[in-house]
């Protein structure tokens, strides 16, 4: 087997994040959700973010999407500062957020419609993406007629229709059962390869991160920050077998150790 290492340093940095901080104030109290995040995102990579609950993963993704403002630092995509959502970034929410009053295809074309594209053209594009996520034949169904896994596929297709450079995914498979989740992981990898996107993927599950990612960003809480970035060595064909390999378990253990060492510190501090 050819060990095709993906060396990120050889590739183009598309997104540059420097000293990114976010402070919330709640009931007059300040909360440092993110503190001085530095991160380079490489074109075409699959980047996973893991970390304990409340360490600011969602907040981070939202800032990258331009849904909320940062408090300090800079974040640039292809050299241009990010200030608001735009077609170069697509967001996949944890809850699928499909509009119950829209059919599957009408949900999928939402982003194009909002960008002012005509219905026929938008439908054609949405159809293509529904096919890509394996939902051919369900175009005219309503969301309540779909299973959780299918709804997440529509969610993904909706983000893909606008043809973003970067896909931001916030625990998209968290609500799915284990079997559906594994199927979705494999699908996502296939789509990632076929569509040639850069992916930033938040998850709670370390094995999911190791299975999917080229690099895993391990975050720590209070204040939310990057603890370590672990590069995952893997063969290009990520088969399910990869999950049984020695390397896989080593990487999972390494990340678990980092996170747990923090939990211990936390418990001692309290």
């Amino acid at each position: 087997m050819k060990n095709n290492k993906m060396n990120v340093l050889d590739n183009n940095v598309m997104m540059e994040i420097r000293g990114l901080s976010k402070e919330f104030s709640r009931n007059g109290e300040r909360l440092q959700a993110l503190l001085e995040i530095d991160l380079d995102v490489v074109e075409g990579e699959f980047l996973c973010l893991v970390g304990p609950s409340g360490c600011g993963k969602t907040t981070f993704l939202r800032i990258v999407q331009g849904l909320i403002e940062k408090s300090a630092g800079s974040i640039e995509l292809y050299g241009k500062p990010i200030t608001q959502p735009s077609a170069d970034r697509g967001f996949v929410f944890q809850q699928d957020n499909l509009y119950p009053w829209r059919t599957v295809i009408a949900n999928a074309r939402l982003g194009l419609e909002l960008a002012g594209m005509g219905t026929d053209q938008a439908n054609a594009r949405a159809n293509e993406m529904l096919k890509l996520v394996g939902l051919e034949g369900f175009e005219q169904s309503y969301p309540r007629e779909l299973s959780g896994g299918m709804r997440q596929r529509v969610n993904l297709a909706r983000a893909l229709t606008i043809d973003p450079k970067v896909l931001l995914m916030d625990e998209p498979f968290a609500a799915l059962d284990a079997i559906t989740r594994e199927a979705m992981q494999t699908e996502l990898l296939r789509i990632w390869r076929e569509a040639g996107k850069t992916v930033m993927f938040v998850t709670h599950q370390i094995d999911e991160a190791v299975y999917l990612a080229n690099r895993v960003v391990v975050m720590a809480p209070r204040p939310g920050r990057i603890e370590k970035i672990v590069t995952i060595t893997k063969t290009t064909d990520r088969s399910e077998d990869a999950k049984r390999s020695q390397e896989f378990h080593q990487a999972v253990d390494e990340i678990r150790d980092i996170i747990e060492s923090h939990d211990r510190e936390d418990i001692m501090a309290n």
């Binding site: 608001q84 959502p85 735009s86 967001f91 957020n97 939402l110 909002l114 960008a115």
Partner: peptide, 8 residues
């Protein structure tokens, strides 16, 4: 928020 994520 979903609509806003598409810059609505």
């Amino acid at each position: 928020e979903t609509a806003y994520s598409f810059n609505a």
